[in-house]
């Protein structure tokens, strides 16, 4: 499903060369529920964005479903993100000028081919499933953090992706709302067999996943 081979990412902070990801190789199989855990600055976010095709490695290769993504054009990468990858962010990243429902539907606007489902119906189904259908016409800043994150998960799921990348999804939520989101994610993994990669700095949260990848100073120290 996801395979990284000798992936490194370096960038410059002024004069200083920073190795955010240092020669990482790993494989994540379909249907896995994995956490990448480590202190802040260990390179776990950079690794996630590389897997999510938002960032490109300085060296090494990323394979999604056996395909080397370094050879893909911007347009092909965008389509892959659109159809195979769903993102859930710490700060929700909903677009404030759109309602909850419009946010959930946004990914469907970028599909070039015909959808094999009715977007309105699917959005309704997801929002009902997450218990926020009554909030569909609310703008993101008018609903609670937990509700916003559910909208974000619904948006990540609408295109029926095979991978969900969640970057500290509970970081901006209180404990209760955080647990609800984590329950929701493990539910998705169990019931729909969606591959989930969860980025966190909290061991407690990482413990909930079946597999932990521990990072330190850009390197994977256990996987």
């Amino acid at each position: 499903m996801i395979k990284l081979k000798n992936v490194s990412k370096t960038y410059f902070l002024g004069e200083e060369k920073v190795k955010a990801v240092d020669n990482v190789s790993l494989e994540i199989k379909k249907g896995e529920y994995v956490s990448i855990v480590g202190p802040s600055g260990c390179g776990k976010s950079t690794l996630m964005y590389t897997i999510g095709l938002l960032d490109t490695p300085t060296s090494g290769s990323v394979y999604i479903d056996g395909q080397d993504v370094s050879k893909l054009t911007d347009e092909e990468l965008s389509h892959l993100r659109n159809q195979k990858i769903g993102f859930v962010f710490q700060s929700f990243n909903l677009i404030n000028k759109f309602t909850a429902l419009e946010n959930v539907l946004l990914p469907t606007k970028y599909l070039k081919d015909k959808l094999d489902f009715d977007p309105q119906e699917r959005a309704e189904e997801l929002l009902k499933q997450f218990g926020i259908w009554d909030r569909k016409d609310f703008f993101p800043n008018k609903i609670s953090g937990g509700q916003q994150q559910r909208v974000a998960v619904a948006r990540a799921l609408i295109m029926k992706p095979s991978i969900i990348l969640a970057d500290e999804p509970t970081g901006n939520l209180d404990t209760k709302a955080g647990h609800e989101i984590l329950d929701l994610l493990s539910d998705l993994n169990k019931k729909l067999n969606v591959t989930i990669v969860l980025i966190t700095h909290e061991m407690d949260i990482a413990k909930r996943t079946k597999r932990k990848i521990v990072m330190k100073d850009g390197q994977v120290i256990s996987k």
């Binding site: 911007d74 347009e75 965008s78 993102f87 990243n93 677009i95 946004l106 970028y110 599909l111």
Partner: peptide, 15 residues
Amino acid sequence: KEIGIRRAIGATKKD
């Protein structure tokens, strides 16, 4: 930020 979000959910440069 909005551009970044749209790119993450599948918008191409052209979009």
